[in-house]
Structures are given as structure tokens and as C-alpha cells.
Design a protein around this nucleic acid. Structure first.
Length: 268
DNA sequence: ACACTGACCTGCGAGC
DNA sequence: TGCTCGCAGGTCAGTG
């Protein structure tokens, strides 16, 4: 379940670990992981160096010398940096050979993650119709007000729409709505201007707190644990049994096809 | 244009 | 104990 804060942590951690490292070879062990031709993917990356590290929504973006490498972890994707003498397991699907017997390994139990190659100068501003970054000034109450005009989807569904804002997943969507005292099933057509401001402000607060918390794990990073970041920091409602504020039993409801946790007392 | 559903995958836990 | 079944969830194609 890596969402924006986790992806940000992974990108910053990898930057520390493999910046300017050269790829000597690429072994794609599960071809469907690659969008496009897996052999061309591998060939395009040989002798390329990891130059800069960016994130757009939940996408990891590595600018190399002549191409851009893009990766999406989906639910369970993880990068590991390991010695090439370490045995591979059956969930390691893409292996990047580096110098000094080092390897960058992509691990994904459910094989949902994807990677692809794009041109070096590719502009990700409108990639896959992604909306504004939630931590940017472009994501504000005015923008939200405009966006939800003529819409009536549940707030939970709205927050998960990457076209609305890029990077929020199931866990943080629940947390943002809990902090905003709004139920996930509430229609976006039935909220006030003040609610819009609360949602925007709480989104920024919760995501930046999560990034700050994830960032602290960089120091304790060890290759055997994978480059993951700290997941699910101090959730108020997600997967909780009782509300930390009022003690009410947390309810679970499927909204937009996803389990949504909320406090029936604190959220209206 | 909008809204909703199923497919993609595998591991795990509940229930029988 | 061993089996089946449903669930987990990000994204996209397909349908209404």
C-alpha cells in the first residue's frame, strides 16, 4: 500500500543509496512487469546511470543519461539493494546489476507493479491525467470547489481519484476524512466551503507529517529490510477497532469498492 | 461526461 | 489438519 509519503521516502532513500550508480545489466524475470518490450527495456538501461530521483503522485521517476525510468509499486512493490551473492526469491521480478556486486532488486508478491522507459526530457505534469500534487499550491480549496462541480461521488471516491489529486490511497483517504469529521460516504455535492478547506488543509497536514515520519526511517535503513519507509503511521481510524477520540466502535463500509473506516460519532 | 465493475495477482485468515 | 473462499487494493479497460 505505498501511497505518496511512502513513495517519497523510497525515492529519497534510493537517491542516497544509488545516485550516479551505473546499470551493468538488467534481468527481467517477469516480462509483464514491463510496459512495452522487456528486452528493449533492458537494452535501453545498460550503461545508464541513475542521475536524478523524483516522484509524481505514486510514480517513481529516475532520470538516467539518455532515458527516464518510471516505476509504480502498486500495492506491494518494494526495492531492495542487495549483494548479488544473496539468493533470489520467487517474488524478485526485475534485477538491476550495479558495480561492486551490488544489485537493485524489485520485489512484488502480487506482480501488480509496473515499469517503463520514457524519453529523458519527458514532462510528467499531465502524465496519465494526474491531478495536482496535494502538497503544491495548485491543490487548494478553489481548485477543489471547481473540480467537484457537477460531481456527486462519495468523498472517499473523490480522494482516491488520481485526476483530482495525485498520490492519495485508501489509508490516507480514510485518515484525511477522519481529521475533517466527514464520513467517507458523504457526497461531494453535499459539503460546505468550510469542509472543502478542511479537506485540503488536512490532506496537506497528514501527508507532510507522514513524509516527516517516513523520512526518519532513512537513517535506520538496512538493505535486508528493503527500501520501504514507515507504513501506516499513527492511524486514527484505518483498520482501528475504536475511535481514539470518543471510544466509539469504528465502522467499516465498502465505498467505491474499497473498505472504508470511520467513526460514526465523530464523522458526519 | 460520469459512475460503476471486473481483471490483474498472490498470500493469508476465516470458516467448515 | 486440510480444504475452499473471500479479501486486500492501485489502476485501467470495459460497460451502462
Amino acid at each position: 500500500m505505498p501511497e505518496l509519503p511512502e513513495v517519497e521516502t523510497v525515492v529519497r532513500t534510493l537517491e542516497k543509496q544509488i545516485r550516479d550508480e551505473e546499470i551493468l545489466g538488467v534481468d527481467v524475470r517477469y516480462a509483464k512487469m514491463i510496459e512495452g518490450d522487456a528486452e528493449e527495456f533492458a537494452e535501453a538501461l545498460v550503461h545508464e546511470h541513475f542521475r536524478t530521483f523524483e516522484r509524481r503522485g505514486k510514480y517513481l521517476i529516475f532520470r538516467m543519461d539518455h532515458v527516464t525510468l518510471v516505476a509504480h509499486l502498486r500495492m506491494e512493490g518494494k526495492f531492495y539493494i542487495m549483494d548479488d551473492a544473496e539468493p533470489l526469491n520467487r517474488h524478485m521480478h526485475v534485477i538491476f546489476q550495479l558495480h561492486n556486486h551490488k544489485q537493485l532488486r524489485y520485489h512484488d508478491t502480487r506482480k501488480f507493479g509496473r515499469m517503463c522507459i520514457l524519453p529523458l526530457e519527458y514532462d510528467f505534469t499531465h502524465y496519465k491525467n494526474l491531478g495536482p500534487e496535494p502538497l503544491s499550491d495548485a491543490f487548494n480549496a478553489d481548485y477543489m470547489h471547481q473540480y467537484i462541480k457537477n460531481r456527486k461521488v462519495p468523498l472517499k471516491t473523490l480522494l482516491l481519484e488520481q485526476e483530482f489529486t495525485a498520490g492519495i490511497g485508501n489509508i490516507y483517504a480514510d485518515e484525511i476524512l477522519a481529521a475533517s469529521h466527514l464520513r467517507p460516504g458523504r457526497s461531494c455535492a453535499r459539503i460546505t466551503r468550510k469542509d472543502e478547506e478542511n479537506i485540503v488543509n488536512n490532506t496537506k497536514m497528514i501527508l507532510s507529517a507522514a513524509i516527516a515520519a517516513g523520512g526518519t526511517t532513512i537513517r535506520s535503513y538496512t538493505s535486508s529490510l528493503g527500501v520501504t519507509g514507515r507504513f501506516q503511521l499513527n492511524c486514527a481510524v484505518h483498520t482501528k477497532k475504536t475511535c481514539a477520540i470518543c471510544g466509539s466502535a469504528i465502522k467499516v463500509k465498502t465505498i467505491g469498492g474499497r473498505s472504508s473506516y470511520y467513526c460514526p460519532h465523530c464523522q458526519k
